[in-house]
C-alpha cells in the first residue's frame, strides 16, 4: 500500500511540476475520448428517436426560418466584404500592416469533464487536424477557452470560467486593460486588480486585448455584471458573465492566428527582429 501510494505521489509531483507526462496523456487520449463518446451515444439515442418522429410541418417551419436567417447573414457578409476592403485601404494609408484573415476549424463537443471543479471540455479534433496546445477556442458568441492537451483525434480545452484560467482583456468602450480570471462558479468571471476609481460600468463589453500573444485581439469575452466598491478593499470587486454560452454550445471553432503561422515558418529569430523593428 505504501509503495503504491508513494508511486502515485511521485506521479502527481511529476505531472504537476514537470511536463514529462504530457506525451503519455495525449497518446492515451484516444482511450479516454472513447469513454466519453460511448457515454454520449446513450444520451444521443433519445435525440435521434425524437428527430425521427419530427413532423413535416415543423421541418418546413424550421427550413423557412433558417432560409430567412441565411438571407440576413448573407446581406451582412456583403457589407463586410466592402468594409474589409476599405479597412485594408485605410491601413495602407496609415502604413500599418494589414490584418490577415484567421483560419478556423470546427470541432464538435465530445464530452464535458465530470469533475465539477475543473471546467474542461473535450473536443473532437486533434493534432491530425493541426490542433496545438494553447490554441484559442471560440464560438459564435465569443471566447470559450484554450486547448490544454492535444491528442491525435481529440483535444481537451480549458474554459475561461475555470479558476486556473485568465485572459488579458480590454474594456471595449474606453480601452482600459485588465486581467479577466475564472472563478469556481460557472458563468462567472472576475476582473482582477482594478482600482476603485477606474471607469468601468455594469454592461461594459470586455474583448480580448491580444496582449498575452495567445488569444487573437478583438474577440468578445464577457459583459460586466456586478461592480462593487468596498472602502475597506484596495481594489473594486468586478464580476462579469461570459458572452458565449459555455454550457449549451455543441460546436466550437479552433482559431489559427496568422502570426502563429508566420512564427512557425520563419522561426524564433525572425519574430524577435520583427518585434524590435516595430
Amino acid at each position: 500500500m505504501f509503495l503504491l501510494t508513494a508511486l502515485a505521489l511521485v506521479l502527481m509531483v511529476a505531472d504537476f511540476r514537470y511536463s514529462y507526462l504530457d506525451e503519455v496523456r495525449s497518446s492515451l487520449g484516444l482511450l479516454s475520448t472513447s469513454v466519453y463518446k460511448v457515454s454520449r451515444t446513450f444520451l444521443d439515442l433519445g435525440d435521434r428517436v425524437d428527430s425521427f418522429f419530427t413532423g413535416r410541418e415543423t421541418l418546413q417551419q424550421e427550413n423557412k426560418a433558417l432560409k430567412a436567417q441565411a438571407l440576413l447573414l448573407q446581406y451582412k457578409v456583403q457589407r463586410l466584404a466592402a468594409l474589409t476592403a476599405e479597412n485594408t485601404r485605410l491601413r495602407e494609408l496609415l502604413n500599418s500592416s494589414a490584418l490577415l484573415d484567421q483560419k478556423v476549424i470546427v470541432a464538435e463537443l465530445v464530452g464535458v469533464s465530470p469533475d465539477s471543479n475543473a471546467h474542461q471540455i473535450i473536443l473532437g479534433k486533434g493534432t491530425s487536424s493541426g490542433v496545438f496546445v494553447g490554441q484559442p477556442v471560440v464560438n459564435a458568441d465569443g471566447l470559450v477557452g484554450q486547448v490544454i492537451e492535444a491528442g491525435q483525434l481529440s483535444s481537451r480545452a480549458l474554459l475561461i470560467t475555470d479558476n486556473t484560467h485568465s485572459v488579458p482583456v480590454l474594456v471595449n468602450r474606453n480601452g482600459l486593460r485588465a486581467i479577466l480570471s475564472g472563478t469556481d462558479h460557472i458563468n462567472e468571471l472576475e476582473l482582477l486588480y482594478i482600482p476603485d476609481t477606474a471607469d468601468i460600468e455594469v454592461g461594459d463589453l470586455l474583448v480580448t486585448s491580444g496582449l498575452g500573444q495567445r488569444f487573437p485581439s478583438g474577440y468578445p469575452v464577457a459583459f460586466v455584471s456586478v461592480v462593487e466598491h468596498d472602502p475597506g478593499q484596495a481594489f473594486a470587486r468586478i464580476k462579469a458573465t461570459p458572452t458565449a454560452s459555455l454550457t449549451k454550445a455543441q460546436h466550437f471553432l479552433l482559431v489559427f492566428s496568422p502570426d502563429r503561422v508566420l512564427k512557425a515558418t520563419t522561426g524564433f529569430q525572425d519574430s524577435n527582429e520583427a518585434e524590435q523593428g516595430q
Partner: peptide
C-alpha cells in the same frame, strides 16, 4: 485499485496519480 484510479485520472484529466492514490487508500 491503483490501475483503475490511474485510468480515471486519464479520463477525468486530473493530476496523474491523484485518483490512483486516493483509491488505494
Amino acid at each position: 485499485a491503483w490501475v483503475v484510479g490511474l485510468l480515471l485520472d486519464l479520463v477525468e484529466g486530473s493530476l496523474l496519480g491523484q485518483h490512483a492514490m486516493t483509491f488505494v487508500i
